[in-house]
């Protein structure tokens, strides 16, 4: 088991004929993902890595059974492609593209809610269930199947944390990148709920960063979880008022600070790692203590 994805998930790639689309379609297939089609307007009838290309999402869905779609098109085109997928009935949509205008994201999210679809991203590396399936751009070789769920806002920092976990012999059930933008689809809480319900996940690692209040809200939810949670947060040394790379990573008007997040998580019974390489040992410790969470 795992969350959102497994070995039977049937995926289409929007923007499959672009450089990124082509390359990552190959990588996903190599990892074992079932890519059943691609969409690229005007390129219908072609093939990429043996995968049939369609002109529209509706056409792809007429000809294939599809569970999820991943978007690789340039930022300006994301809104159109996302709305197309949602109207066609896609229920799991991953938007890898970064630099999507905020108002476009808002429109996509409003329509997704109406269509009862789940969106991961924008500006995400995607999600992966090691040993089964991946949707996104993460390197294939750092993951290891196991029983720890990982949810993160940042891409390469999740790779770093997963690398530390794998190095410590701690495998992962699923790893989800929420995306670094100010407005993204799936939240920490939605992913935590899925990990809490997933029998294959025994503990969760939350990778957060400064800015916004997503970690504080997650902490509220974690208070009611039965599975242990370990966290790592980036941005302790970041000065206020400066946007640290991600649109959402900024301390504004004294809000979104590192301290506030650590305090909220600690109060919820989360072990917060000071250093990236402390995450593996803390998870092992939490697992050894059993699934019953220890407070205080």
């Amino acid at each position: 088991m795992s969350i959102i994805l497994n070995q039977t998930t049937r995926i289409i790639v929007q923007g499959i004929t672009g450089t990124q689309g082509q390359f990552h379609t190959g990588q996903m297939i190599a990892f074992g993902s079932k890519i059943v089609g691609g969409v690229s307007p005007g390129k219908g009838g072609q093939e990429v890595h043996g995968v049939p290309v369609y002109d529209t999402v509706e056409e792809a869905m007429l000809k294939q059974q599809v569970d999820a779609s991943v978007i690789f098109v340039p930022a300006k085109l994301v809104k159109d492609c996302a709305l197309e997928a949602l109207e066609a009935g896609i229920k799991t949509l991953v938007i890898v593209t970064e630099h999507v205008p905020l108002h476009d994201t808002l429109e996509i999210m409003a329509y997704a809610e109406k269509q009862k679809a789940e969106i991961v991203g924008p500006n995400t590396y995607g999600l992966i269930s090691p040993g089964q399936c991946k949707i996104g751009i993460m390197p294939n070789n750092i993951f290891m199947p196991g029983e720890v769920g990982v949810v993160a806002r940042s891409g390469t920092l999740s790779y770093e944390i997963v690398y530390q976990l794998t190095g410590a012999g701690v495998g992962q059930s699923s790893v989800v990148g929420l995306g670094g933008d100010r407005v993204v689809g799936m939240s920490f809480i939605q992913v935590l709920e899925k990990f809490e319900a997933d029998p294959a996940t025994k503990a969760v690692v939350l990778v957060g960063e400064i800015g916004g209040n997503a970690e504080e809200k997650a902490a509220d939810y974690i208070k009611g979880m039965t599975k242990p949670v370990v966290a790592f947060l980036a941005g302790k040394s970041a000065p206020p008022g400066k946007r640290m790379g991600h649109a959402g990573a900024i301390i504004e008007r004294g809000k979104g600070t590192f301290k506030s997040k650590v305090e909220a998580l600690t109060a919820a019974g989360v072990s917060v790692a000071n250093l990236p390489w402390e995450v593996g040992p803390l998870v092992k410790q939490a697992l050894a203590q059993g699934s019953e969470k220890v407070y205080g």
Binding site: S154, G155, T156, F232, K236
Partner: peptide, 25 residues
Amino acid sequence: MANGAGITMATLDLLQHFGSSARNF
């Protein structure tokens, strides 16, 4: 110099943790 916002922030934090500081992000 690092690649990715999160890992860059974490690198800055590590420098501070070990008693130094970063010239930039």
